[in-house]
Design a protein around this nucleic acid. Sequence first.
RNA 1: GCCGGGAUGGCGGAAUCGGUAGACGCAGCGGACUCAAAAUCCGCCGCCGCAAGGUGUGAGGGUUCGAGUCCCUCUCCCGGCACCA
Length: 888
Amino acid sequence: MEAARIIGVFAQTDQVVRAMQEKYHPTEIETAAQHHWESTGAHRAAEDAGKPKYYCLSMFPYPSGKLHMGHVRNYTIGDVLARYHRMKGYNVLQPMGWDAFGLPAENAAIQNSVPPAQWTYDNIAYMKKQLQSLGFALDWERELATCKPDYYKWNQWLFLRMLEKGIAYKKTQVVNWDPVDQTVLANEQVIEGRGWRTGAVVEKREIPGYYLGITQYADELLSALDTLPGWPERVKLMQANWIGKSFGVRFAFPYELDGKKDLLWVFTTRADTIMGVTFCAVAAEHPLATHAARDNAALAAFIDECRHGSVMEADMATMEKKGMPTGIFVEHPLTGEKVEVWVGNYVLMSYGEGAVMAVPAHDERDFSFARQYGLPIRQVIAVEGEDFSLDGWREWYGDKNRGYCVNSGKYDGLSYDAAVDAIVADLKDKDLGDKQVQWRLRDWGISRQRYWGCPIPIIHCETCGSVPVPDDRLPVVLPEDCVPDGSGNPLNKREDFLACTCPKCGKPARRETDTMDTFVDSSWYYARYCTTAATRAANDKMVDAGTAYWMPVDQYIGGIEHAILHLLYSRFWTKVMRDVGLIKYDEPFANLLTQGMVLNHIFSRRTDKGGIEYFAPEEVELIRDAGGQITGATSKSDGDAVDYGGIGTMSKSKRNGVDPQALIEEYGADTARFFMMFASPPEQTLEWSDSGVEGAYRFLRRVWAFGYAVREAAAAKPAMPASLPAPLSDVRRELHLTLKQANYDLGKMQFNTVASAAMKMRNALEKAPKDAAGWDAVVAEGLAILLRLLAPITPHICHTLWSELGYAGDIFAASWPEPLDAALAQDEIELVLQVNGKLRGSLRVAAAAAKADIETAALANEAAQKYMEGKPAKKIVVVPGRLVNIVV
RNA sequence: GCCGGGAUGGCGGAAUCGGUAGACGCAGCGGACUCAAAAUCCGCCGCCGCAAGGUGUGAGGGUUCGAGUCCCUCUCCCGGCACCA
């Protein structure tokens, strides 16, 4: 192999620099560098108490078939951080694995009649090659796939611990059931009452399933967000909203129905307005609504309508508030007054009690509802200087921080807190209510009627019921040769899987065929990577001392789409593992970086039939005006106009994706990596640009060409002279100044400006006058800085140039470059000269010049005098090292 | 509707504490090399203006010697969501 020859030749003596290739051949040097890292075990991580540890983790991929640009971006960011920290002296762990269970494998199986396991393993093999070709510094010895029994055994094991602790439990709940796919759908997957994939009318079914009591940890999950300064604020806010803690009062309206006494429970955060209740509203699914609908056809029809309505909030905010009376009356708990119960489409069965008290005067929804149906509105809160009127809603009606009770009998004059306390005391006396904290978060249903997932370790026995599988019979292994055909879970047909004996009584029994939600798999993989080789081999522990050493993750990198579910479940799982005594840390991810998405241009055209036809960017020709602005596009195949649809996320359906494989093959991994880092800061969206990729490639070619051109000067290892001629010391100073800035930017993870700093350095080096004394020393030093700065971003070219140019050792073992004071120092500095805040010139002064001397020099300056127009200076502002501003 | 984040050249994006706005790159224009093209190299490149100069960071106002950066009001764009009682 060509590449091996270059490296082989190089390893010997100084003379071989002549054998260095003149041109940049990315494929050759990348293959060689990757072989070098592989054969030297460069990326293996081992526990080392002598160094600070740095655990750098990117969210593991689903093995969908091939990498997409989002993966490339994610893993490049992680790799830059990992390699940078390694050069900074950290003991770095960067592992990789596969989130290998899930629905796409089953769909592929249905289409191609291949078992999901085989499809998944094939994809893993291909994608692993792709990851390797990108040169990521990954410790592949720690690779894991969640579909392997040695991994999911511990899902099952911890699930059993949760059962013991009462965190996991079984319950029957109404779910959205897709009769075609034979599975449960999440609310998000039900669109206008139909399954998102099949279009079948979704049924409400009561089916049993296993739930994890994440609500038991709601308080800690919320309060511990404050212990995560390294997380983006918006992610913490999204989690806080999702957990949704609210303080209020739960109380009941007594009623009698069919001769039976009962209570209608409601939750409110405005107990102070309880005297203003004029009706109650219940959700369509509420038992009272069901009861009333029994002999009320119109109400039954209305309830049916409510059930089919959207559950998405965006629709609901604009939705018309509708309702219908049930004819049922309940009793006000404090006044004994009769209060009518309505069914309201704005009341949610899933929150609180599925019923609300309605205070139209002080709740905006109740207000509009009451006005629409002519229900009474009773003001019970007043604000000084404001008039209450029924003409329309005003902001202050619902503001609990202003005002006091009126028309409320004994509570009159009380403010919010006092009124709530007094009212709760009275409710408590009657045993009809108390203060309560209400959470939006609900327990995590993990049962899926799916084949390709982790089996739930339960055995159903006719005499003993649901019996947990004993620890010593774990893992419950999923057969890997099933081929789903779309007619439900194939496990139900697998007698060899189903048949078992009851662990309690020994009689023949049946295995549970539901599998776990794949979010379970991804809730703790980061802890498993950390285990020692011994534990991985014996598989006798879930986590071990390696976990204690590496965890928590120092930097986690992934998409914002996981801001809530994956990150919340992982935090929950961590706390359970801690409470089971497996680990000591409270939070899994110390720092979180949510990378932006990769976007590209979208081109489309209306078809004759009225549909939309998308064009890949390479299929169109852009039309630009004289200034270079894009004004339109035409199809390359038929020459007709194509609509330019702006930019959007890369997606298959819009045909605007770019295949990383083609990119790597054409330009090499370093170009792909450099472009990804340079085009925008990691948290922002990244716009794809073919010419931007060209630019990245051009830059790397120039770096190589420069290295080639100065190979002899660099190899001679010249000493830096005590003093340099001005043009050279300027170049050297610029290099060190740029380095100083780049180091600062690295600390902020602002890699785009680090990449531009590398470009600036090369530009500066190119400008250095070759005939000046000390040129070789400046170039040799500068190149050593440039290569190390660039190495985390483009490791292959930097590794190769570093050794080809004869720098000592391996570049990734070299120390991180730091700017030298001697190089930064200068005798004279240039100050900006302003008159009245406007730029009027510049001023050269001695670096050590005193303020008074600077002022004198500024006043004597020709440009300054011109713009002062003979007026005396009122004031002179001197900003040391920066500017002088003369105010006249 | 609510919450969060934004708005800087033709484009992606720089500008650490309020101190030369537009770094770096892309696109564009001009030139060198070439039979030619590509590649490469050199130069120009916010807007108005021949120039001097003026003007300019979504809009309007304010604070300041000085504002992209701080304060107030507004517009638009993106992301998230729960009619949450």
